[in-house]
């Protein structure tokens, strides 16, 4: 299983959990299983076409999946997956 770090804005779908363990041989499967385990979270990460939304970046082991194999990027047991949305506060 991989450990997925959940940003605060999406924790309402994970009952407040900061990180969750999810199966998946690649990012696509992992996000699918994440949605199965925590309904509603998937559409906040990927759009209707299945692509990762703008303003959201997904990193596997701190590497940007856009420059690996995108949603086909392989995920190994023990990998850390970070979902990093844009934030803009600061006043």
């Amino acid at each position: 299983m991989a450990t997925v770090h959940i940003p605060p804005a999406l924790r309402k779908y994970t009952q407040g959990k900061e990180e969750v363990s999810v199966d998946g041989g690649n990012v696509r499967d992992l996000l699918g299983n994440l949605e199965s385990n925590y309904p509603g979270i998937g559409e906040r990460i990927v759009d209707d076409s299945g692509a990762v939304r703008r303003f959201v970046n997904v990193f596997v082991a701190d590497e940007d999946i856009r420059f690996m194999d995108n949603l086909d990027t392989s995920v190994k047991d023990g990998d850390e997956v970070s979902i990093v949305p844009a934030i803009a506060g600061g006043r």
Binding site: H5, E18, E19, N57, F59, D62, E63, D64, R66, F67, S82, V84
Partner: peptide, 10 residues
């Protein structure tokens, strides 16, 4: 979470 990550976007 007490975490600080250095992510390397391309």
């Amino acid at each position: 979470a007490g975490s600080m990550q250095t992510l390397r976007p391309r």
